[in-house]
Structures are given as structure tokens and as C-alpha cells.
């Protein structure tokens, strides 16, 4: 069965980009435009991985991460941010990976592959 990824980002352009790029890799992609919406989606759908932007109006990515990990302990979450150097720190803390937002999605796809591969 195809794995389903939930992309959470307040930027429409980026959501669509992620959707097209990740679908090309053979994953199903759900989209959420806010932290609140992402939690609703998670209640309804069966999601295998969350790609989460940190800086969002309303509920930010760190808060979403906290709630996701409370409720779905084993659901992998990849945090996206502008601060590349917090990687190690955050990674060991709660998220499963920490990605610097970039127009080059190679690192992101590689990380998703590794995490989804590990799960099975």
C-alpha cells in the first residue's frame, strides 16, 4: 500500500510543490494549511508521516509537534525550518528529522525514504 504523507505549510505554493514532488516519488500526499487543520486531518485519515513547517500563523510547528507526539507517539514527523543548525538538537528532542527548507528537495526526499523504510 502507498504511504501517505501529510504536508503542513501555510504557503500554498510550497504545499503544491511538495505535493507534486512527493507524488512523483510514489507517495500519497495530504495537505493542511495550518497547525489546527493538520490535527483534524490526523484524526480522520491514516497518515504515515508528517512534514511540518515550524513558522506558521496560529498554532506553530513546535506546538503541533508536541500534540502529535502526545497522541501518536510513533508517527514520524519531519520539521522544516530556516535554521539549519538546530538540526541535531531538535532531532534528538522530539522530531524524527530536521530539514532546512530549500528549493532543492533532494535531502527531504532522502530523509522521508529513510524514515518510511525504517518503519517496515
Amino acid at each position: 500500500m502507498k504511504k501517505r504523507i501529510l504536508v503542513v505549510d501555510d504557503e500554498e505554493g510550497l504545499r503544491l510543490l511538495y505535493k507534486e514532488e512527493l507524488e512523483d516519488e510514489g507517495w500519497d500526499v495530504d495537505l493542511a494549511a495550518s497547525g489546527e487543520e493538520s490535527l483534524e486531518r490526523l484524526e480522520k485519515d491514516s497518515i504515515d508521516l508528517v512534514l511540518l513547517d515550524i513558522k506558521m500563523p496560529g498554532m506553530d510547528g513546535v506546538e503541533v509537534l508536541r500534540r502529535v507526539k502526545e497522541k501518536w507517539k510513533d508517527l514520524p514527523v519531519i520539521l522544516c525550518t530556516a535554521y539549519p543548525h538546530y538540526k541535531h538538537d531538535f532531532g534528538t528532542w522530539a522530531s524524527d528529522a530536521y530539514i532546512t527548507k530549500s528549493s532543492d528537495l533532494t535531502e527531504l526526499k532522502q530523509t522521508i525514504k529513510e524514515i518510511l523504510g525504517k518503519k517496515r
Partner: peptide, 17 residues
Amino acid sequence: AHEIRNPLLSIGGYAAR
């Protein structure tokens, strides 16, 4: 920088596509 960054990522990403 934040505001410019996101649209920029879109542009770059779509250029790559």
C-alpha cells in the same frame, strides 16, 4: 527574509520540476 524565502523556495522548486 522569511517572507521572501517561502515564495523563493516555490520558484526554485518549480524551476527544478
